[in-house]
Design a protein around this nucleic acid. Sequence first.
RNA 1: GCCGGGAUGGCGGAAUCGGCAGACGCAGAGGACUUAAAAUCCUCCAAUAGGGAACUAUUGUGCGGGUUCAAAUCCCGCUCCCGGCACCA
Length: 813
Amino acid sequence: MVRSERPDRYDVKAVEKRWQIEWERQDLYSVGSVDERPKFYCLEQFPYPSGHLHMGHVRVYTLGDIIARYRRMSGHRVLHPMGWDAFGLPAENAAIKSGVSPRISTLANIAYMKTQMRQMGLSFDWSHEVTTSEPEYYRYTQELFLLFYERGLAYQKAGAVNWCPSCETVLANEQVEEGLCWRCEAKVVKRDLTQWYFRITDYAQRLLEDLEGLDWPQEIVTQQRNWIGRSVGAEVRFAVPLIDDVISVFSTRPDTLYGATYVVLAPEHPLVERLVEGRKEEEAVKNFVAEERVVSDIERTAENTDKRGIFTGAYAEHPLTGAMIPIWVGNYVLSDYGTGAVMGVPAHDHRDYRFAQKYDLPMRRVVAADHADQPSDEAYTGGGILMESDRFNGMDSDQAKSEIAALLAQKNRGGPRITYRMRDWLISRQRFWGAPIPIVHCSECGTVPVPLAQLPVLLPDHAKFTGRGQSPLAQLADWVETTCPQCGHRARRETDTMDTFVDSSWYYYRYTSPSSTSPFDPKQAAYWMAVDEYVGGKEHAVLHLLYSRFFTKVLYDAGLVSVVEPFRRLLSQGMVVYRGKKMSKSKGNTLSPESIMAEWGSDATRVFILFAAPPEKDFEWSEQGVEGAYRFLQRVYRLAQRSVRMTVASGGADDLMARVRARTVHKVTDDLERRSFNTAVSALMEYTNSLYQNWEEMSTEGRRAGLETLVVLLAPFAPHLADELWHDFGHEQSVHLAVWPNYDAVLLVDPEVEVAVQINGKVRFKVVVPAELNADGLAARVLAEDRLRDHLNGRSVAKVIAIPGRLVNVVVR
RNA sequence: GCCGGGAUGGCGGAAUCGGCAGACGCAGAGGACUUAAAAUCCUCCAAUAGGGAACUAUUGUGCGGGUUCAAAUCCCGCUCCCGGCACCA
């Protein structure tokens, strides 16, 4: 035992240090070799190596660690790895400022954060560590890119994309939050660029359907569902004789087709130019398009933005009535949703109504509300009975939707169709510190994938970070210039790197076999996947979590993995709040994990984090709170010290304490299973209190059994102190190799129970009765009570409800 | 606007399947120990009213209704807070 100056306290720093060294010496948390035990894959989102852990990290890793430790003790073979999401902008920006190469600063940051994690006493198996920015990792990120390319899931496309002027790179749709860059909060603008995409939309339906079977928080599932945004409707094709072409629109309301009085194209729609070419409207329409394209996306898509439009002078043929209706260009139509064109049904759509009002376009009512009053000054968007709709008159909207869609299909003018809100994932970035896209552009052969044998496409080590002009890669002529792998002619390398979310979409596969000479060993992946428990923040609800699901489905289709979903169970932890606000440098309310560990130790910090709030809720840091956790651990320590100088005692409380012990084991186990860590800690506190209270009446054996159970149960929560006390008790092996305690179910039932007696639902008194008493016996026992008569005051008993072990309700009148 | 989550003492929270509301901790009050303080150990701690006290009664889980012998929990109607999406046709 490491002794401190004070006999009534243990020296937290010395104890924690000692066991950290000892665990490492023994390689205690190594996965070990395959045996009979069931596997358990416990994963926490790996950090970006910014240089220091923050309190959010401390919380996630504490949560993951307690789960890993509990599973290990309860007989699982646990994979609990850690690594680094090490590509990204901050390192590159630092290089621009200070000239230090991103790789050097990243590796230094990793080294430091690793020591912080060791100080936290986290039970990682470091032999599975991965670093996404090292060639031995990104080589396989590139290999997976090529797999996607081969399967037609990686492609280049020109178009208006989100551009962050501050990061000087493009962003995926998921990475734009309310018009701002997710990372730096700069205003995102549109740029026309040719970029690389992953065809995630091909998987939209499966990504939606498979949400069903996941043990994930409702909140996250809902967010993903909304993000995918499935809409059922119909495609409607309007012929345009003028250019001998067809305008295709998507509508969720084919039942209102007879009410369509015009068609609107997005300004970016490919047909706009041809429609007006060489005609008197050409100049005005082109000016309109040019103006609208300058307007930012946020402004364009804000609901209160004025609807603006211009008539093209051209007409389209209504597919069912044959009427010629005007074709407009309008700012309220999005180019990248549906077909980039809509049919205008002003009587039954708010937006069309406002547009039609402004430009004085005709309205046709074709749906009569079947119950409610129809508003006369706005669109009626509900369902009802069709009118003015030819042979569909009198039909209800729901039926008309499918019948009109069927008719369109029959006439080859469209048909039923499903559209998703989600867009393809833009993965190219005009930055240096990422995995280079393994593509060569050859003037003869075009776009050529780099052959597997030539991977990795290494990041050059002589790049200059000026912060000006193109990406550092594009400025390195000797890196860019290469030869075509197919024809040997001179060619240019692709200078874009991949979005760092690509790196993190598959790291949990790499963990299973970190030195595999393929992205991962399919046998290891088959053994370990899916992840049994994934702990992370809510901020990745539709980013990392969606991308990872997509990757898994592609890998499944390629026959490389046997699961269709990567994360079976998800624990989405809340924020760490300090002084009422989310911690941030700008608010000046940050807390450094270093100083907290130094002051209270990591055991107390862990216990407090787990105790103060359920994991999914926000958690408020409090000095007094952590002190309470610290006091609790010292109290356990002092109790354990008593065992060395035991006084002779009766053992009168042994039976009672055996039951308390069984109850505690049951409670803590159940709470850990359902991730109710705060109540598990509270059960340990109650148990400790109970040991204090009954100590004098316990026998030597009773005390010892009671203490050992306490220490084993405490092991996942306060691993250092638990191991210290365990060894004090004379055990040679670490407490973390101990078996999770069992209990005799018989002991959970007390021989006598206290039952509340209610009169008309109000508790009046309590009786102690034998536990095995059945409902009738209980009722009879209570009716014979003198105290009941006192409360009746002459009223008569109408009914007695007796629930054994709980209460008796006597209904009187 | 749509979708999701939530509201329980002075505070964080508990009540797992409709069955004793407030476990556990923090803060607070008191006692023991001490020359004293800290630390520790023990006790009390929802509100209101009566009483010296034990105790007793009433009220009480955001608000208003309902179902039930019994509601923090289920149903209907609201209020407020947090999060996500939002001109997505």
